[in-house]
Amino acid sequence: MDAKEIIARRVAKELKDGDIVNLGIGLPTMVANYIPKDMDVMFQSENGFIGLGPVPEEGKEDEDLVNSGGQPVTIVPGAAFFDSSVSFGIIRGGHVDATVLGALQVDEKGNLANWMIPGKMVPGMGGAMDLVVGAKKVIISMTHTAKGKHKILKECKLPLTAANQVDMIITEMGVMEVRKEGIILTEINPEYTVEQVQQATEAKLIIPKDLKQMEI
């Protein structure tokens, strides 16, 4: 498995039967591919529908079915479509159980920066600013580093999407929970050592005595 598949598979294990979950663009959309068939999880897309399905097979995309990032998607039986006001009413009203987002940077205080790329024109942060404060649980799914550069920092250097809102970080190296005392490494991919994970992380990780092997 490549890094993104490892991450998506592990994120899927965090979701529970009956959850309403928002998936951000990019890697998070892969999570829908790994939900057990006997589990009822409804995925919401902030551009106006609930019932997001797995990523479509190549050549079977429907140009009228896209997520908020304009990527082709599928829908499941029972899906519902609505306008943006209803969609953001669901998000801001606290009806989303979890949101899975990518990130450029996360820090030990649970701050998130995931929209401003230096040197590139970007339209804005989209629905992320609403999702991170409206969802009951915020899960960051991302590769641990970017071309060797740290992404899990002591303090974010890019403009923040939100402050103190991240609950969990899942990378190909492990699973981390963000708490008041800092970032706790709760699970580690057995292909890495604790030293390697710490070396790839600027923030000081808290290593519990009962550190578990990462479930994939």
Rank of each mutant, 00 (worst) to 15 (best):
V100G: 07
G70A: 07
E57Y: 14
V100H: 03
G18M: 03
H144K: 11
I139E: 08
A103F: 02
T193I: 10
I216C: 09
T171K: 10
L101C: 04
V175M: 11
M173C: 12
G148Q: 04
I188V: 13
A3M: 01
I50F: 00
V100P: 03
I206E: 06
I140N: 00
K137H: 13
K136Y: 05
A113L: 00
V11W: 11
K151C: 01
D2N: 15
P54E: 12
P190G: 04
F88P: 00
T99A: 04
N67T: 07
D97H: 13
Q196W: 11
Q198P: 09
M129R: 10
V11M: 05
L27S: 04
G18P: 07
V197Y: 08
H144N: 14
A200M: 05
A32K: 09
D97N: 15
G51H: 10
M173Q: 13
N33D: 15
L112F: 09
L65R: 13
H144V: 13
L153I: 05
A80H: 06
V178L: 15
E181H: 05
R179I: 06
I169D: 00
D62C: 10
I216A: 04
I206A: 10
K60H: 13
I170C: 12
P72M: 05
R9Y: 01
G59C: 06
A162Y: 01
L153E: 08
T186N: 03
P123Q: 03
D40A: 11
I207D: 02
A8Y: 04
F88W: 10
G69M: 13
D17E: 08
G126E: 12
I170F: 10
G26L: 11
D17K: 00
E181Q: 14
A128D: 15
M42V: 12
G93T: 07
N114P: 04
M1L: 05
A163S: 13
G48E: 02
E5V: 14
L211M: 03
G134E: 07
I139R: 09
R9V: 01
Q213W: 07
V55W: 01
P28N: 07
Q213K: 15
L65T: 05
E195R: 06
K180G: 06
L205Q: 02
K137G: 04
R92F: 00
K13Y: 05
D17G: 03
I206V: 12
I90W: 02
K147C: 09
P118R: 09
T161E: 04
T161G: 06
D19V: 06
V132M: 14
I20H: 10
P54R: 12
E58W: 03
L27H: 00
M142V: 08
T99R: 01
I140C: 03
E14D: 01
E215P: 02
I206S: 02
F82L: 09
V194E: 08
Q165E: 07
M142I: 06
G24T: 12
D19W: 06
F88Q: 12
I170A: 11
M129N: 04
N164H: 12
D38C: 03
A203W: 03
L23I: 10
I188Q: 06
V133Y: 05
M30Y: 11
T143N: 13
I170K: 08
L153M: 15
G134K: 12
E5C: 02
K212C: 08
P123G: 02
E108I: 11
G18W: 03
V55F: 00
L153A: 02
A162R: 02
I6D: 08
L27Q: 01
G148V: 12
